[in-house]
Design a protein around this nucleic acid. Structure first.
Length: 571
DNA sequence: GCCGTTTTCGGCCCGACTGTTTTCAGTCG
C-alpha cells in the first residue's frame, strides 16, 4: 500500500497540532507544518524519490530527522510520534481546535480542567456554563463557541468564477465610496489558486476607517467578525469570508505583497530582510526606522536583490532562489495561445454549431481549433459513431475550404474503455488530425488497474493528448486513483501530450502536476473543453494554472503555429 | 526540528484584533 505525499503531510500536520496542544517547542511544530507544505508541493512522490536513491534531507525544511521519519512512514505506513501523541491526547482534538476562538492553549485547558475529548463534550460543558470556570474564558467567548457549535461551517473552498463575481461586486461597492485611492484583491485569488478559501481585499486611502465602515454596510454582509481601524473581517451571505486591510499609499506595495502571500513566500522574504539587518512588514521595508522601500512590490523585490516574482509563483517552491539569480521562468501568457485543442459542438453535447464555435475561436484571435466531440460510448452526450464522425469530417473539410487564416482540426474526444482500448477503431482515428483520449467511467478501478488502463490508451499511436488526466471535479468529485509519476513517464516515452483542462470546475492537471510534467519534459495542451462559444473564455483559467505550474510558452503545444503543432501531435 | 559568507548553538516573520484584564495572552492571517 503506497503512501502518498499528501498522507504524510496530513500526519505531520496532525502531529504539529497535538504538539502545540501539549505546549511543545513552537519552532518544532512549525518545522512539521513547513515540512507538510513542502511535501504537498513536491512534483514527485517521496516513495519514488526514495526508490531512486534521492536524499530527502536535501529538500528545504527537511533535515536528517524528518527525512528518516518519512522513510519509515513510506516503509511501514506508521508514524510512531503521531501514534504516541494520539495515545497521550485521545479524542477529536483537531475538530475542537477548529472552532473559531479555540487554539492550542485553550484546548489544552479544556482537556486538563474539564476532561473534554470531543465536540459533544465541549457542547455539554458550554451549555452547563462550565467554560466560565476557566481562566480566559469570558462570557463573550462562551457565547461565540456555542454559536459556532450551533451552526458548524464546513471548511469550504470556493471556485474562481464564484470568487471573481463576489470580489468584483464588492470591490466595485468599496471603490464607489472612496475619494481617491484604490481597491484590489490579493491573497490566493491574486495568486490564481484553483480555489480560494476567503477574499483578501486591500484598499489604499488616507481615510482608513471609512472603508472598513463601508464594508460592514455592504448589503451582502451576513456577519461582521472583526472591525478595527485598519482591518475588517466579515462573512458574506454566500458563506465566503472577506478580510479587508487598509493602508496609506506609501505602503501600498508592501501591503499588497503581505496580503498576496503566500505565507511561506512572505516568511522567506522577511528572512532575507532580516539577513540584511532590515525588517519587512505590511508597511514597508525598513532599515531601523526609515523606510527604504514599500510603495511598490517591484521596489521591495529589487532592494532584497530579487527579480520581480509574479504572484502565481509565490509559493516558496524554489522561486526565491531563482529570482536571486535573475532566472525565473518566462511564464506563458494568454496572448501566447494560438488555438484551442478540445472543443465540443452540437454534434455531441455542445450547444453551438461547428460554424459558431469556429467563428468564436477566430474572434479570439486564434489560428486553429480542434473539434473534439465525444465518441459513441458517451451515449448521454450523443457521442459520435464511425458513420457520424465520417460525416463530420466531410463537413469540416467543406468549412475549412471556405476559411481564410484559420483551420479547424478534425478530432475526437475518444473514450478510454475499461481495458484501456479505445471507443473507435484505428482505421477511423487514422483519418483525424488529432485524437484526445479521456476516461469518463469506471473511476473506481484500483490504482494499478487505472494506471495500466490509461497507459494502454496512450500506447495507441493515434492518441495525441490525454484529456483531464485525473478526472477530478473541484469540490465535487475526487480524482481517480492513478500513479501520476508512471503516467507522465509513459507519456514522455510515447510522445503523448497531457491536457491542462482549463474548465474552472476541473483545472486538471493541477499546478503541482503541471510543474512535474514540465520537469519531465512532457508537453502540455491547455484546452477549454468548451461546450459553448462562451466556454472558450475559460482559457484564461487554464493559463493561470499553467503559470502556477511554471510553464513557459515552449512547454505548451497550443502556443505553436499550426505547422509546428501538427508535428507535435503526430506520433 | 531546521539551519548557517557572523554561527554546529542559538536563533527561528510580523502585526491586528478580541476579550479579558488593568498590561496582555491568545488567536488569526
Amino acid at each position: 500500500m503506497p503512501v502518498h505525499n499528501a498522507e504524510i503531510a496530513a500526519m505531520f500536520d496532525q502531529a504539529a497540532e497535538l504538539l502545540e496542544i501539549k505546549g511543545d517547542n513552537p519552532f518544532r511544530t512549525r518545522a512539521y507544518r513547513r515540512a507538510a507544505r513542502v511535501l504537498e508541493s513536491l512534483p514527485k512522490s517521496v516513495a519514488a524519490m526514495l526508490r531512486a536513491g534521492e536524499d530527502l534531507a536535501e529538500l528545504p525544511g527537511i533535515g536528517e530527522d524528518l527525512a528518516s521519519k518519512i522513510a519509515t512512514i513510506v516503509e511501514t505506513g506508521k508514524f510512531d510520534l503521531l501514534e504516541s501523541l494520539k495515545r497521550e491526547l485521545p479524542g477529536d482534538l483537531g475538530e475542537i481546535a477548529a472552532i473559531p476562538g479555540l487554539g492550542p492553549k485553550r484546548v489544552k485547558l479544556l482537556i486538563e480542567k474539564l476532561g473534554v475529548r470531543s465536540i459533544e463534550d465541549v457542547r455539554r460543558a458550554a451549555k452547563r456554563g462550565r467554560l466560565g470556570e476557566l481562566p480566559g474564558f469570558g462570557p463573550k467567548l462562551q457565547q461565540n463557541i456555542l454559536a459556532a457549535l450551533a451552526k458548524p461551517v464546513a471548511a469550504k473552498r470556493f471556485k474562481l468564477p464564484f470568487a471573481e463575481a463576489e470580489a468584483g461586486a464588492l470591490i466595485d461597492w468599496l471603490s464607489r465610496g472612496l475619494d481617491g485611492g484604490r481597491v484590489v484583491a490579493a491573497g490566493s485569488f491574486r495568486r490564481r489558486r484553483d480555489t480560494v478559501g476567503d477574499l483578501d481585499i486591500l484598499a489604499t486611502t488616507t481615510r482608513a476607517a471609512a472603508v472598513g465602515d463601508r464594508l460592514v454596510e455592504y448589503e451582502d454582509v451576513a456577519k461582521a467578525l472583526a472591525h478595527g481601524p485598519t482591518r475588517t473581517t466579515v462573512i458574506l451571505r454566500s458563506g465566503i469570508q472577506v478580510d479587508l486591510r487598509v493602508v496609506k499609499e506609501e505602503s501600498c506595495g508592501a501591503a499588497l505583497m503581505y496580503f498576496t502571500g503566500s505565507k511561506a513566500h512572505n516568511i522567506a522574504l522577511r528572512n532575507l530582510a532580516v539577513d540584511r539587518g532590515w525588517k519587512l512588514n505590511e508597511y514597508g521595508l525598513f532599515d531601523e526606522d526609515s523606510a527604504i522601500a514599500g510603495e511598490t512590490e517591484e521596489g521591495i523585490y529589487k532592494k532584497l536583490g530579487l527579480q520581480f516574482v509574479p504572484p502565481e509563483l509565490r509559493e516558496d517552491r524554489g522561486e526565491i532562489a531563482l529570482a536571486q539569480k535573475n532566472a525565473l521562468p518566462h511564464l506563458v501568457q494568454l496572448s501566447d495561445i494560438r488555438g484551442d485543442l478540445h472543443v465540443h459542438s452540437n454534434w455531441s453535447d455542445g450547444n453551438a454549431t461547428i460554424a459558431e464555435m469556429t467563428q468564436a475561436a477566430k474572434a479570439r484571435g486564434y489560428a486553429y481549433m480542434a473539434l473534439t466531440d465525444h465518441s459513441r460510448r458517451v451515449t448521454i452526450a450523443h457521442g459520435l459513431d464511425r458513420a457520424r464522425l465520417l460525416r463530420q469530417i466531410d463537413e469540416i473539410d467543406r468549412l475549412n475550404a471556405k476559411l481564410r487564416g484559420f483551420t479547424v482540426l478534425k478530432g475526437i474526444e475518444v473514450d478510454i474503455l475499461a481495458d484501456g482500448s479505445l471507443d473507435l477503431p484505428d482505421e477511423v482515428l487514422s483519418r483525424l488530425d488529432i485524437v484526445v483520449a479521456a476516461v469518463h467511467y469506471k473511476f473506481d478501478l484500483s490504482r494499478d488497474e487505472q494506471t495500466e488502463r490509461i497507459i494502454r490508451a496512450m500506447d495507441n499511436r493515434h492518441v495525441s493528448i490525454l484529456a483531464h488526466p485525473t478526472g477530478r471535479l473541484i469540490e465535487e468529485r475526487a480524482p481517480y486513483d492513478i500513479d501520476m509519476d508512471r503516467v507522465m513517464t509513459a507519456a514522455k516515452e510515447r510522445g503523448c501530450c497531457l491536457e491542462l483542462n482549463a474548465e474552472p470546475d476541473r483545472l486538471d492537471l493541477t499546478d503541482v502536476a503541471a510543474k512535474a510534467a514540465k520537469e519531465l519534459g512532457v508537453q502540455i495542451a491547455i484546452s477549454t473543453d468548451a461546450h459553448s462559444t462562451a466556454g472558450l473564455a475559460y482559457m484564461r483559467y487554464g493559463v493561470d494554472q499553467a503559470r502556477r505550474g511554471w510553464l513557459e510558452p515552449g512547454d505548451v503545444i497550443n502556443t505553436r503555429p499550426l505547422r509546428y503543432l501538427k508535428k507535435l501531435i503526430r506520433r
